[in-house]
Design a protein around this nucleic acid. Sequence first.
DNA 1: CTGCTATAGTACAAAAAGTATCATTATTTG
DNA 2: CAAATAATGATACTTTTTGTACTATAGCAG
Lengths: 195, 195
Amino acid sequence: MKKIDDPRIAATRSAALDAALGILQDEGVPAVTHSAVNKATGISRSTLYRHWPETKRLLIDTFKHASGPSKLKPAADGPLRADLNWHLTHLVTALNETPWAKIAPQIIASATMDEEAQILLNELMGERIAFVENTFIAAQARNEIVSGAPIRQLVEMMISVPYFRKLILGATLDKGWMESHIEMICSLAENPVPE
Amino acid sequence: MKKIDDPRIAATRSAALDAALGILQDEGVPAVTHSAVNKATGISRSTLYRHWPETKRLLIDTFKHASGPSKLKPAADGPLRADLNWHLTHLVTALNETPWAKIAPQIIASATMDEEAQILLNELMGERIAFVENTFIAAQARNEIVSGAPIRQLVEMMISVPYFRKLILGATLDKGWMESHIEMICSLAENPVPE
DNA sequence: CTGCTATAGTACAAAAAGTATCATTATTTG
DNA sequence: CAAATAATGATACTTTTTGTACTATAGCAG
């Protein structure tokens, strides 16, 4: 009885979220409104309101649309420096060459106000953290790093510094910086912290 | 001729920004409007528009009002662990016990869209970075750390991890974590990174 | 083809943003 | 103290935006 797969639904949804994402990048969260999407796409306001009765839902879906499917891969076959280099390159590329550097701060700010944004942010970050963590665990299994290495803290250092430099300081994330960053992390992983 | 110091100006400005700050904490950037401040304070809209002709200026001033005057002190008289502990305690306190954890993400997100917010953010962060950096430089002068220590990177690690944990992961910043964080930083500062 | 339903269009109501004018009131200055 | 001055509050108005309701059209499924 029901038309469960009308292609128009996916089409308008996709077109609307594409436009909303562009608006989010260019003008920020307050500009992501039904009317703005209407002006950008020609999709009528009534249709947009049917898809997203609340502005908040439109924004959350735009965030999800922006993050898209994950492109993370295991990369834990060693050696450690190579794996870490892969992970850091992946993160730096996302921050330098995708809209992520503009989208992420908006999600982070929304997460302080909104439960759903908080959950989305945790999913996105948790995935990356888990992958890097597995890299260290694998390296530990191969005896590349000391057995008592504080893996969780190493993971957080690995990821937090590029985010801080890019989002908060507006600093560059270049090849030279990446190399010395990895070297410092490895130095901590390979030598026991003295008591 | 001119009345250069009418106390009413400072009074309304202060009352309006107090209310705007509360609104910013509770409902985020989009809610910081002249009308919202009017409802919260009773200050007439016409007066508010005279003080801040553009909404953007109201928001920036609210940011500045939130950050307030700096409370950083030198704290570079050693030993290094004590100085770092002072700095980290100061930062963690700001993140745990003031509205800063809610305000900072809003400023960071605004900074990606707005030049003035970017400048304000750089000032706020630059001040803290400079203080921590001076701590390391002083420790180096006292021969507490190796001469080739990568001070700038140590400073960024010192600061970025607590921000990342609090703002992005929503994790706790407790006493135990602080101690091991400082220990890792010191380990890097006291031992030369092997080539 | 026929029925269903997503979309577009229109109209409308409510709220908010922004501007302008004027009376009132508090403060400065002489 | 008294007058000049400037800030505030109140009101009115225009424009824009938001949100809702209803209708006609057009595309898709069965």
